[in-house]
Simulated scan of single mutants.
Amino acid sequence: MFTTVASPLTAAEPADPVISSIGTPTLWAATIGFVIALIALDFVLTRRPHEVSTREAAAWSAFYIALPLAFGAFVWARYGTEPGSEYLAGYVVEKSLSVDNLFVFMLLLAGFAVPAALQQRVLLYGIVGALLLRGVFIAVGAAALQAFAITFLVFGIVLIATAVKILRDAVQGHEQQVDVDRMRSVRLLRRFFPVTGEYQGPRMLTRENGRRALTPLAVVTFAVLGTDVVFAIDSVPAVYGITGDPYLVFATNAFALLGLRALYFLLNTALSKLVHLGYGLAAILGVIGVKLVLHWAHGVWPSVPTVPTMVSLALVVGILVLVTVTSLIATRDREEKSPAVR
């Protein structure tokens, strides 16, 4: 379906970026069909709005973690160590970035006062929109990387710039905030359509004073889809820093996104404890950005080294473990000191 470019972290000779892809038409069709089936199942399960329990969220989270790991084992056994390690590293990167996305989803749902019973439907719409947008970004990215070697440099600069912004916000202690009334997507929608003041179950359209109007559910869904564009700009170049195979890029994105709905409800309270996540994401994006720049430089000056995928995987996992441990320690110390402050 797509032409594959060599992995930016493992290619020995980037002068000729075309390599054989594991993404045969049959594998592409099977994977896309399986993803569509899972999405359809999610829509069936959420057709009747209900508040998600911790037990339900934990069960689905376990399923959506076991599934991509099993697929990774299949890739490793069927296609070898290099594709297997690239898939695993890409999945870990995408999953870590998706956790940061959950912060924004949490703020949007709170800002729009979405009823608990409707939250999973909003998340599901957001996941479908993200999959479609990233599919476009993956195709465009593959074509750009195939045609222009300097695309590696552009992707690297984008990731490094994003890493600097995230790090600056983390150092300055800026808390993520969303003013829904000032969001461009919300203002654009309200400019052309009237919006009702109350939710009406899972309905997005209704009639008010004899004319069609949007419900708040439609507005928050549109806002979530708007943020999907921003997320795709970071996540797709990031995983292209791990593997140049568009099939593996799609698979890592799809599996990371499919489990977001359940993960949101499982980590809804725990997310606030990851106070150092910003530092970790900045480090991860910075590392991958540097690797992309090095890959581009290696094509111009062959003496410039590149870094194996396993090294990148070790760095990403190590960073995530470190910031998780330091976050939990910082949160515990803050909670222990808070009674004395009161």
Results as ranks from 00 to 15, higher is better:
Ala283Asp: 06
Val164Trp: 03
Val323Tyr: 03
Ala57Gln: 10
Ala161Leu: 09
Thr81Asn: 07
Glu335Phe: 08
Ala77Phe: 15
Gly23Ser: 09
Phe192Ser: 13
Leu248Phe: 06
Val104Gly: 02
Thr151Tyr: 00
Leu123Met: 12
Tyr125Asp: 00
Ala12Glu: 15
Leu214Ala: 07
Gln172Trp: 06
Met1Glu: 07
Leu133Thr: 10
Asp181His: 12
Leu257Gly: 06
Gln146Trp: 13
Ser338Pro: 05
Val114Cys: 01
Ala147Gly: 12
Ala147Ile: 09
Thr331Leu: 04
Pro25Thr: 11
Ala149Cys: 09
Leu131Arg: 00
Val186Arg: 05
Gly259Cys: 07
Thr46Glu: 08
Ala147His: 08
Phe148Gly: 14
Phe250Cys: 12
Ile19Lys: 04
Val5Ala: 14
Ala57His: 10
Val275Thr: 10
Val154Ser: 13
Gly197Glu: 06
Asn268Thr: 14
Leu274Ala: 01
Ala149Lys: 05
Arg261Thr: 09
Arg211Trp: 13
Leu124Arg: 03
Ala77Cys: 10
Arg261Trp: 01
Ala161His: 05
Ile150Glu: 10
Phe43Arg: 09
Ile32Met: 10
Ala218Thr: 03
Arg184Ala: 01
Val341Phe: 13
Leu271Ala: 07
Val52Arg: 01
His295Trp: 04
Val275Gln: 03
Pro8Leu: 14
Lys165Gln: 07
Ala110Ile: 07
Val92Gln: 02
Arg203Met: 03
Ile150Gly: 13
Ile157Lys: 15
Arg121Tyr: 02
